[in-house]
């Protein structure tokens, strides 16, 4: 049976790992390659590296980092941040990334999803969606949560699915950084509606939150950052706990 995946996410700025709380304050949390290698040895199933600056000058630093990750780590990894066209995808795949994650650029140019799927295969194309629950429902955001759009989470996720995305990485901005659990109600709807895997993101604080997102949110994978980076949750212990809950996990 296919295992549920545990995915540490490393936000990268100037070649270093950082993590924001509610998308604002950033704290330092170490060397990305070293952290990635440690996570891989501890049993992380995949890694995500997000270039949160993604300015033109810093692209090359990030591409070099992707290459060093690929050289040193023997599990799949996704990279995102500043991917606007096919040549960006090609550059990152050539550096050794397994998948790319697109977010704002997908909302601005939805056809990019079709193009990535056609040229490199659906499995390469992760669409990340940042959304906030408002009185008008779940709305998608651009630019790391800074700009609201009129796109509805569920219809946008379905469109991504139909255009050939391989996975949806859904971050609830209401839950992110709060450490009070994932947005399981919204995740359950996404898992039910979509034919591609859904990665839960935003809200992990305790091992029970991972159990709940797999059991109640039907997520295929759970992503977290600071709880792993600061050692609040250790991956081997988390995986033992989830196994004990009869969740299919790779040990």
């Amino acid at each position: 049976m296919l295992a549920k995946r545990i995915i540490p996410c490393l936000d990268i700025k100037d070649g270093q790992t950082v993590k924001g709380t509610n998308f604002i304050h950033l704290r330092q949390a170490g060397d990305p390659v070293e952290l990635g290698r440690i996570y891989s040895e501890q049993g992380a199933d995949e890694l995500v590296f997000l270039d949160i600056t993604a300015s033109h000058e810093e692209r090359k630093t990030f591409t070099d980092l992707v290459k060093r990750v690929a050289e040193n780590i023997s599990i799949p990894f996704t990279v995102g941040g500043g991917i606007n066209e096919l040549s960006d995808v090609n550059r990152l795949l050539e550096a050794g990334a397994d998948k790319v994650s697109i977010n704002s650029s997908a909302i601005r140019h939805p056809h990019l999803i079709d193009e990535i799927a056609f040229h490199f295969g659906s499995q390469v194309c992760v669409v990340a969606i940042d959304a906030r629950q408002t009185e008008a429902g779940w709305k998608c955001y651009l630019n790391g949560g800074r700009i609201e759009t009129d796109k509805d989470l569920f219809s946008w996720a379905t469109e991504c699915n139909d255009r050939g995305a391989g996975e949806i990485l859904f971050t609830s901005m209401n839950h992110d950084g709060v450490k009070n659990g994932y947005a399981n109600d919204a995740l359950a709807i996404l898992s039910e509606t979509l034919t591609i895997p859904v990665i839960a993101s935003g809200g992990a604080g305790k091992p029970e939150h991972f159990r709940d997102t797999f059991e109640k949110g039907n997520a295929d994978a759970a992503l977290a950052a600071s709880v792993f980076h600061f050692g609040e949750i250790k991956i081997p212990e988390l995986k033992q706990y989830l196994c004990g809950c009869n969740i299919n996990i790779r040990l």
Binding site: L2, T195, A221, L251
Partner: peptide, 28 residues
Amino acid sequence: KVPHMGWNTISHTNSPLFNGFDKDEFVY
């Protein structure tokens, strides 16, 4: 869901390719 993507187990292994494994191991 298709593609089959992620970690799954290999069983009934029968080859020197799988020397050293005493249970169904997960691969990607």
